[in-house]
């Protein structure tokens, strides 16, 4: 295999619920994985197996107890577990994209500016950023009359597609996808599959959770099988 872009070793993650009797939920118990350019690793397993937990931990959204998460960034490696905050944020801004079903935005911002924001924070000029945002909104079939409106008023499906446009607007070298096609209609699902294929073709490393078996089969290049961990226990 070519040199990986993501390399994870010995990743452990437990949740300690201090205000619920100190229950400890051990979710990830020593995960190892490597993903190279152009690959799409599918996280597969029953509900509760820790697929979302793994994905969130890779993004440094969840804090692991042990292990390393190395990501190629600026020609070197950054360990997302030990890197200082401004470095993790730099990796997220330029290298590591996050695609989820849920949109969280400032209430008043127009959809096109929500989508353009990742480019604006990278210093792309407003007009160029908006042009690229417009291209993606059109591709994801958001009617042009909605572009200048705040997405908080949109339907659930429209919000999800605005969010997808936001996540694909910058060509991140690494993409983490949390059920990107959930609840999309067939046409938009095809569009998202196309976006993922294009990302892989340009050399992105992709890790994703896909509920839909057909999507899994079409975009995945490898599968990581995850099993349900042992149940919760009370800390001694």
């Amino acid at each position: 295999m070519t040199e990986p872009i993501i390399s994870v070793r010995g990743l452990r993650k437990a949740f300690i619920l201090h205000n619920q009797g100190g229950v400890v939920l051990r979710v990830l118990n020593g995960i190892d994985l490597d993903v190279a350019a152009g690959e799409c690793l599918v996280l597969h397993g029953p509900s509760g197996a820790g697929k979302s937990t793994l994905l969130r931990t890779l993004y440094a959204n969840y804090l692991p107890q042990a292990g390393e998460i190395r990501i190629r960034h600026d020609g070197g490696w950054v360990d997302m577990v030990t890197a200082p905050p401004h470095r993790v944020l730099d990796v997220r801004r330029r290298t590591l994209g996050w695609v989820s079903q849920f949109l969280r935005v400032v209430p008043r911002v127009a959809a096109i500016d929500v989508v353009a924001e990742p480019l604006r924070t990278l210093g792309v000029a407003p007009d160029a950023a908006r042009d690229r945002a417009a291209g993606l909104l059109a591709r994801l079939r958001i009617p042009e009359r909605l572009w200048s409106l705040a997405p908080s008023t949109f339907s659930g499906g429209e919000q999800q597609r605005v969010n997808l446009a936001h996540s694909f607007v910058h060509p991140y070298p690494v993409l983490l996808l949390d059920e990107p096609t959930a609840s999309l209609d067939a046409a938009n699902r095809e569009t998202v599959i196309g976006l993922i294929d294009e990302a892989r073709a340009r050399g992105a490393a992709v890790v994703g959770i896909f509920h839909d078996a057909e999507v899994r089969r079409r975009v995945g290049t490898r599968v990581l099988e995850m099993r349900e961990p042992a149940g919760g226990e009370v800390a001694a």
Binding site: F15, I16, L17, H18, N19, R56, A60, N61, Y62, L63, P85, H86, V88, L89
Partner: peptide, 30 residues
């Protein structure tokens, strides 16, 4: 971008904002 959680004059937890809000570690942050 980052958050510091204070209690009784001391910082009990610090981290990226989304990490502290989505996976708080300290009993008080939780």
């Amino acid at each position: 971008h980052r958050l510091m959680v204070m209690k009784g004059g001391a910082v009990v937890e610090t981290g990226l904002t989304d990490q502290v809000l989505d996976d708080p570690q300290h009993p008080y942050s939780q």
